[in-house]
Design a protein around this nucleic acid. Structure first.
Lengths: 189, 189
DNA sequence: GTCTATATATAGATAGAC
DNA sequence: GTCTATCTATATATAGAC
């Protein structure tokens, strides 16, 4: 499972997914990038649906670890907010990438059903985390209490997802940074 | 140009595009929906890139007309804001659709270059309109003056785009309505 | 586990009859 | 303007040798 090639495939495929979308890359693209034959990829991921599910599953696992780390740390809600922002800034920095949720929700109806389900689980994970963050910030008295945390979380996540996409189209990373700043201003007291 | 079949093709294709993404539908899908042969589609749109460009071009034209109507009307900035919101509510209402900018920016790097350019023009059109709306609202004294109108416009558009997508994944239209309400609260005094 | 070879389907696209 | 027929390319996927 943690085989070298299997991981490489996931790395490349995740990158292609976030750059070109699920229907925008092929096993051939992955094979070319790694320097193997496309038949070899089927050994690890029999179908493209399997591959897609595996990418999202791994993302969820990594996010869970990251969230656990944040919990263990003694970070304040403000610091956690910044850590989460950094998550997205990294995506923009790499260039030409958007978030997993962004690609897959855009192609939602054109993606195999198992991927749809895994995505829904992922979105749920992330929103639960954001809700928790917003609760902490309110308890610490540093976040504004605008509407319910559930509503605010949806608004917050939607904005980040959309901003990554718009920044890519305009070709201006500052678009994203600017949106981040406004997001911060609306949340932090 | 305004031929019946040509328009039908554009209608169906636009719908498929907003539902499944550019790489998620084929000429065959369009042919099936209309009841013609796929070769006939090539008569109107020789390449799929041509079709994609035509969809965005038509959207831009329609948006221009809509914007002109708004200008001619004696609507206040608040009323125009609501009219614009309605634009998006209609997309959600039809179900399983997201905005044109949302699909194409997600697939941006996997879409023919002429479409990329047309999309950039479209995004520019829309943002110019939003900026103008925000200016009017400020002049009328009914909108909050949070940051520059340019920054606020990017944030505003990003949020709408992301919210449509998230609402589709969660399958809950109320997610979108809830985000709209928050957006309004952040803009209107 | 990786390969060659191949199956099968479908994509976008063109030629030419009607 | 729409059709049939066909081309070419590429997609996902499988069989089986090594």
């Amino acid at each position: 499972m943690a085989s070298d090639t299997g991981q490489k495939i996931l790395d490349i495929a995740e990158n292609l997914l976030q750059t070109r979308g699920f229907n925008g890359f092929s096993y051939q693209d992955i094979a070319n990038a790694i320097g193997i034959r496309k038949a070899s990829i089927h050994y690890y991921f029999p179908s493209k649906a399997d591959l897609g599910v595996a990418i999202v599953k791994r993302y969820r696992k990594d996010f869970k670890h990251w969230a656990e780390e944040q919990k263990q740390s003694n970070k304040s809600a403000l610091e956690k907010l910044e850590a989460y922002f950094q998550f997205y800034v990294n995506i923009v920095d790499v260039g030409n990438k958007i978030c997993l949720s962004g690609v897959l929700s855009a192609e939602f109806k054109a993606v195999p059903e198992p991927i749809q389900q895994e995505l829904q689980g992922m979105v749920d994970d992330v929103y639960q985390w954001i809700i928790e963050l917003l609760r902490e910030g309110r308890e610490e008295g540093v976040f504004k209490e605008t509407g319910t945390v559930e509503e605010q979380a949806m608004w917050f996540g939607s904005t980040l997802q959309g901003a990554l996409q718009i920044a890519r189209v305009t070709g201006d990373k500052n678009v994203f940074i600017s949106v981040l700043n406004q997001l911060r201003a609306f949340i932090v007291k």
